[in-house]
Design a protein around this nucleic acid. Sequence first.
DNA 1: TAGTACAGCGCC
DNA 2: AGGGCGCTGTACTA
Length: 600
Amino acid sequence: MRAAGVSGGSDNGVVYIVVELMSAGDADPSAPCVRAVPCQVDPVSGQVHADAPVVLSAADCVAWVTDREIDRPRWVWADTSVVYDFLLARGVWVAKCHDLRLSRAILSRAAWVDSSVFRAPSSQAEQGAQELAWWDGPTPVAARQDVLFDESHSEVTPDCVAELERQMRVLRTAGNGWRQRLSFLMALESAGALIAREMYAVGVPWDRDHHEALLREQLGERPAVGVRPAALEAVAQELRRLLDAPELNPDSPKDLLRALNSAGIPVTTTSKWALREHRHPALAPLERYKHLARLWTAHGWAWLDEWVSDGRYRPVYTPGGVVTGRWGADGGGALQLPRAIRGAARAGDGFTFVIADASQLEPRVLAAMSGDAAMAEAGRGGDMYQRIADAGVVPSREHAKYGMLGAMYGGTTGVSAQVLPQFRQAFPTAMAMVESAARVGERGGQVTTWLGRTSPPGVVSHPDESDDADVARERRLRSRSYGRFTRNFIVQGSAAEWAMAWMVEIRLRLHQLSLGDPTLSAPSLVFFLHDEVLIHTPVEWAETVAEVVRVSARQAGETLFPGSVVEFPVKVLVNDSYTDPKVVSQGVGESHGDLADHAP
DNA sequence: TAGTACAGCGCC
DNA sequence: AGGGCGCTGTACTA
């Protein structure tokens, strides 16, 4: 299957259907609910030719498209989280969309386009300016489903067709190569938004009893509100005794720091890594206290009450929520679920999880985008860090790992700085790319990811003779810091693009699978963590799904980096609970996604 | 009382 | 070590 949803490089001939919700209706799929405007986009000018609007029910949405023999039109709407939630609740699955807000954010920051039309209304200045501001603002309360169609809140009626046309025109101010990449990026970002809402709708099967047993084991019984759990209070008491500080509140860093200093521990911060430099009988219990306190406050009973219902944990993702293009999370801590509680994610009866993560994704993306042949070669057929060590570039796997992290993050000390010269020599092309990105950032310039997402403008600050030494030093530090950011931006952001392409491929293939068996028991993507996905699937499809995950990784690499020899192996694990493929399947996981998978 | 800054730690 | 986040409690400001 060619992944139509991903190959958004060209929009020639694509039919766009602009969709707006027009009536709350009810859950009845036959009730009229959306106004749909079929459009064609002129490939040269970007002009949008709109047909007459049609009013559709949810049931119509699918049938109508089929009747018109349109294969997978691109649905266009202001906000995926508003319109798609509405459609999903009525059983409408959408193959691909164009999220106007997410796409506008990409285009309006992109270095390679002239986006002035987003800021300069051509006519009807007052009204026009308001509408332009609407597009850049947050989703208005009135558009959210909980208060949908509450007219009192909406002062501006956004014109989705007009916004689509603005975006298509802006896109065409980019050179041909960047136009295709940005177009692709918008397609990926929009598809990601679909996936994020589908994940929310499905949820991760979550075993409350298991989670509570885990809490009881470590913290004791659930305490009254505002009271420390017994086990935590016991550790606090022990700390007060060991530090000879009867009034100590270990939750107060200030209080704690004072107590530590009084006890003769010369630290200036109470952070875990600083304390590990010292020896004192209180430090082990303190680390234990911090661990338990975190578990209790962030992922304890209150978390369960708020985020798990009907046996499902529903992660709230915000695609494009991070400057680099990574997804963010909004409540529930979807991107910070501690390993310690992941075991509470348990597959339902007759189901299991396919857990997959991409091995050493960022270095591989760096190798591919820079075209560094040596780095690509180091990633062939196995553990990249081990192979770098084996090749004699550095003495050990650890050196290779920290060297790579230093290259991508801008490490200046320790092992990462120490092996920099060897890395420069062994991987000149890749190192030149990240170091060039760093220099651009240091000068206050902007860099872009592989698909053209652009870093925020840096702060340009020129030296001045009147500066004293401190000011000059501060400016140098800021400049270096921004350089580390832009250095990492190109890698982290491009890796996020790979991850989205991977997930979109997986989604379309899983959908193909379920077409053959249109029952409720289809495999679903339920969780995502930067370079890792969790799929809930009927047991009998687990191996098929595992293969889908591997094939999709290969396809994502080929789609993003055509002709590149860089491999993107994934570790795949089939398990009834959410455990870590990195830990559980050393060796085993690789044999799933092994060399045979990458053979021509 | 409400909002915000910061420290600290969870994840990648 | 170095990049990106979200969430929590404490401590502080308005």
